[in-house]
Amino acid sequence: MNALRWYFDFISPFAYLHWQKLRALEGTLDIEPVPVVFGAVLAAHAHKGPAEIPGKREFTYRHVLWQAQRQGVTLHFPPAHPFNPLAALRLCVAAGSRPEAVTAIFDWIWGQGRAGDDAQALAPVADALGVGAAALASPQVKDALRANTDAALAAGVFGVPTLAVAGELFWGNDAHEFALAVLAQPELLQTPEMQRVSRLPQAVRRI
């Protein structure tokens, strides 16, 4: 069974929610977590994150809390958001991006609402994962995270979380059922209307 690549950043509460759904499929699907720098993805596409836009920021926070309640998932925001996720991402890479590492870091930041913006804040998680503080600053870990992000951009990723299924990208926690449907029935994307919208021309472009 080929692994489905799942691109994510710990800065995203929607990625935290989506991870809960993916964990429930353990043993059914082979998921490869791929930590990436969301800020670099945004910069590559000249986008702002939802938490950087007044009004959209507040709506996004309320929306994700509602999704968590509906999904039956405990979610507590960390002390500040957005925060710098590099330390958390590097910890994940240093721990081999194993599912248990992804779960532990997500639980610390979004399950318990603790800070995850530097090595000191993440020290209890790093200790539990058996990762020394020096590993987070190692060139190998930094290069691996950069390579993950470059690979995500090369694959066409424009946001997180994104699940790659047979060359198609499914963005967001709310695209989970769509991704599973296409995984079960790839022909869903081959209908005339699906094909038409994939080639739909643009009548106007903003400058």
Rank of each mutant, 00 (worst) to 15 (best):
L4T: 06
L4R: 07
F8P: 04
S12I: 11
S12H: 09
L17D: 04
L17Y: 08
W19T: 00
Q20N: 14
Q20F: 02
K21T: 09
R23G: 00
G27W: 07
F38W: 12
G39E: 00
G39P: 03
A40E: 01
H45G: 04
A46H: 06
G49P: 14
G49A: 13
E52A: 14
I53T: 15
G55I: 12
E58H: 12
T60N: 08
Y61A: 15
V64P: 00
L65Y: 00
W66L: 13
Q69G: 03
Q69F: 02
V73T: 10
H76D: 02
P78W: 06
P82C: 00
F83E: 05
P85M: 02
L86G: 03
A87V: 02
A88M: 03
R90V: 08
L91K: 06
C92A: 15
V93I: 15
A94S: 07
A95W: 03
A95Y: 03
S97N: 15
R98Y: 06
R98N: 13
P99F: 11
A101T: 07
V102W: 03
V102D: 01
A104S: 07
W108D: 01
W108Y: 04
G113I: 06
G113A: 10
G113M: 09
A115M: 06
A115C: 07
D118E: 05
A119P: 01
V125I: 02
V125C: 00
A126C: 10
D127P: 05
L129N: 04
V131E: 12
L136M: 08
A137C: 09
S138D: 14
P139T: 11
P139V: 09
K142R: 14
D143R: 15
D143V: 13
A144C: 10
A144I: 06
N148K: 03
D150K: 15
A152Y: 01
L153N: 12
L153Y: 12
A155P: 05
A155M: 09
A155I: 08
A155L: 08
G156S: 12
V157M: 11
P161A: 11
T162P: 08
A164K: 01
A166S: 15
W171Q: 10
W171K: 11
G172W: 03
H176W: 13
E177N: 02
F178S: 13
A179H: 03
A179D: 00
A184P: 06
Q185E: 12
L189P: 05
L189D: 05
Q190A: 10
T191G: 12
E193V: 13
M194D: 01
M194H: 09
Q195I: 05
R196K: 13
V197R: 15
L200S: 12
L200W: 12
P201N: 13
Q202P: 02
A203I: 08
V204R: 15
R205S: 11
I207R: 14
